[in-house]
Amino acid sequence: MSFFNSIGRSMSRNPRAQKRSPTPTSATFPDMPPPPVPPSPASPVPSKPLYLCSPFVEAALVKGNFKTIVVLPKYVDIMEWVAVNVFDFYTNLNEFYGAISECCTQHSCPTMSAGPNLSYTWVNQDRKSVNLAAPTYIDYVMTWVQNLLDDENVFPTKSGHDFPQSFPSTIKHVYRQLLRVFAHIYHAHYPQILHLRSEPHFNSLFAHFLAFGREYELLDIRDVKGATNASVGVGLLWDKWREMGILEG
């Protein structure tokens, strides 16, 4: 069933639990080396990212195809299902970022990058695209999503209150922004994820996020893979997981 074709259906739901973002916690990395110096033009071509290398690319808490855990359960309203899952993705991603946030600074991450040739820009209140350091960009994203989650007009929690007509388009925008946070962490902070020995958890969260987004038409594959001349690093991870049978096309 298409999420975008179901917005007009009436619904009655049990109220969800109060939504609150966890306070990010800071992790200490006493043995982490300083950020690597970018190679000079004469340096050898760098090897592929760690998250594409074995055994890290195979690390996961869930075995098999993630299609099985994103299918709409019987008797569950599709709007409620999407809302609850988006809340969970946000909450878990917020916790992961909180754990590595001390390594994501204005100095180490002066741009919101997701690949060697790709940096995302933020659209400000004047509808102008501006370059922001990654921690500032991510703070804007997480604050914006939290405000949406706390808005009863967007994410109603009381029985009998319907989701707005704009809910699908809002969720698609949320999904695009959360994808960018995932992409930056994989590109710039996967060593810290490995240091915490959390790669099975983080890979499973991201694979679940991708599978759910594709199942309910929330994710454009072009956002995952990027343009030819500015590819997103996690686009290769998407392809690898498809080859492994973890994700579907």
Rank of each mutant, 00 (worst) to 15 (best):
H187Y: 13
I138E: 10
Y216R: 01
K19D: 03
V123H: 03
F167H: 09
W122V: 04
F89R: 05
I78S: 05
G115S: 12
R180W: 07
D139K: 13
V62I: 13
P200T: 00
F202C: 13
F3R: 12
Y190L: 12
S21E: 06
P41R: 12
G98Q: 01
C104P: 00
V57H: 08
N92L: 08
R197Q: 15
A60R: 07
T170N: 06
Y75I: 01
T170L: 15
V232D: 14
F202R: 11
F163R: 09
D126I: 01
L237G: 02
K240F: 05
F202M: 14
R127E: 06
I7C: 13
T143A: 14
P39K: 12
V82K: 09
I193C: 15
M1C: 08
K63Y: 09
H107L: 13
R214A: 04
T28E: 06
L61N: 12
R127K: 07
I246N: 09
F155K: 09
A134K: 02
A211K: 10
Q177H: 13
I246C: 13
K63D: 11
G98I: 02
H161K: 10
Y97T: 01
K63A: 10
L194S: 02
S198N: 07
P34Y: 02
M244L: 13
K63M: 12
S12T: 02
A183E: 09
P116R: 05
I171R: 11
W144I: 00
M142N: 07
M32Q: 11
S119T: 07
S198I: 00
E102T: 11
A230F: 04
G115H: 10
K67C: 11
A17C: 09
V62P: 01
F206A: 01
F155M: 13
I193K: 14
M32E: 07
P46T: 01
I193N: 09
E152P: 02
T23I: 14
T143R: 13
P44Q: 08
F96A: 09
A211F: 13
E217I: 00
A207D: 06
V70K: 12
S166Y: 05
N147D: 10
R9T: 03
S21Q: 06
I246L: 12
S129D: 04
G98C: 08
F96D: 05
P168S: 09
T23G: 06
P55K: 15
S169L: 14
T157Q: 06
T136N: 05
N85Y: 03
V181W: 10
P24H: 11
G8W: 03
H173S: 10
V181G: 08
K172G: 07
S12Y: 04
A27V: 01
F167K: 13
R9G: 11
H161L: 14
S119W: 01
K172I: 00
S159P: 04
G98T: 00
D223N: 14
T111I: 07
V123A: 02
P156M: 15
Y137D: 03
F29L: 07
T228H: 14
